Simulated assay, not measured.
Amino acid sequence: MAQAAPAIRILALGDSLTAGFGLAPEEAFPARLERALRAEGKDVSLINAGVSGDTTAGGKARLDWALAAKPQLAILELGANDGLRGLDPRLTHANLDSILKRFKAAGVPVLLTGMLAPPNYGKEFEAEFKAVFARLAAEHDVVFYPFFLDGVAGDPRLCLPDGLHPNAKGVDVIVERILPSVRKLLERGKP
C-alpha cells in the first residue's frame, strides 16, 4: 500500500506579526493560514518561526535554525521593526538579500511580504524603505505580496489596542488577502 505524501512544510519566518503577538497560538498568522489552506484541500504544515521584536538582522542570524526544519517553501515577513526603528533601508535590503540567497541555495521557493515605514521618518525614508521589498522581489524572482498589513493597518477594529499588531479578525483579513499569493508559492513548490 502506498504511503500518503507528507504535508508540505511552509516556514513562516518573521517578527511579531508572524509570531502572533498578543494572540492565542491558534490565532497567529501561520495557524490561520494553515487552516485556510487545509480548508481548500491542501495538505500543508506551517512552521511558525516568528520572533517578536525581530529585525531583518535577527531573522538572518537565526536562519540556520529555521532551515533545520527542512521547509519546502517559505514566507518571509521581516522589516517592520527595521522601519519602526528607522534603520537604514540599505541594511534592510542587505539582510533580506542574504536571507533570500540562502533560501535559494537551499532550494526553497519564497513568498516575500513587503512592509511600509511609519510616516514619522519623512517621505524620503518612506519611499526608500518601501522600494526595498519590490526591488528584492524583482532581483530574486520571488512571489511578492507588497504590504503584509494591507486592509488591516490603521483600522482599530482589526488591530490590538497598540494600533500596530492585528487582532484575530485582522489576522483573518491578512490571510484572506494573501491567499492568492500563497497559492502562487505552492505552484512554484511543485516538483
Rank of each mutant, 00 (worst) to 15 (best):
M1H: 12
I8G: 09
I8V: 12
R9Q: 14
I10K: 00
I10A: 02
G14T: 02
G14H: 01
L17A: 13
T18W: 14
G20M: 02
F21D: 04
G22V: 14
G22K: 09
A24N: 11
P25Q: 01
E27M: 01
A28K: 11
F29H: 03
P30K: 06
R32S: 09
R32Q: 14
L37P: 09
G41L: 02
K42Y: 10
D43W: 01
D43T: 14
V44F: 07
S45W: 15
V51C: 02
S52C: 04
S52M: 00
G53E: 10
G53Q: 15
T56L: 14
G59L: 01
K60V: 13
K60Q: 14
D64G: 14
D64R: 15
W65G: 00
L67M: 02
A68K: 04
A69N: 15
P71I: 02
Q72E: 11
Q72Y: 00
Q72F: 06
L73M: 10
A74V: 06
L76V: 05
L76E: 05
L78D: 11
G79F: 08
G79K: 02
A80W: 14
G83W: 11
G83Q: 04
L84Q: 00
L87W: 04
D88W: 10
D88F: 07
P89F: 04
R90F: 03
R90G: 15
L91E: 00
T92G: 13
H93I: 01
H93L: 05
A94P: 00
N95Q: 03
N95E: 10
N95Y: 09
L96I: 06
L96H: 12
D97A: 15
L100H: 05
L100S: 05
L100Q: 07
L100T: 00
K101W: 01
K101Y: 00
F103E: 04
K104G: 12
A105I: 05
V108Y: 08
P109T: 10
L112G: 08
G122L: 10
K123F: 06
E124A: 14
E126T: 07
E126S: 08
E126A: 04
A127F: 02
E128A: 10
K130Q: 09
A134I: 09
R135F: 02
R135E: 09
R135K: 15
A137L: 07
A137R: 07
V142A: 07
V142T: 14
V142F: 02
Y145R: 10
P146G: 04
D150S: 03
D150H: 05
A153N: 10
P156C: 04
R157N: 11
L158Q: 11
C159H: 15
D162P: 10
L164N: 08
L164F: 11
H165V: 08
K169C: 03
K169V: 01
G170D: 05
D172P: 08
V173F: 03
I174T: 03
I174M: 10
V175L: 06
V175K: 12
V175Y: 11
L179Q: 00
P180I: 04
P180R: 00
S181N: 13
V182C: 07
V182M: 12
V182S: 12
V182H: 08
R183Y: 13
R183L: 14
L185C: 06
L186E: 13
L186K: 05
G189W: 07
G189N: 15
P191Q: 04
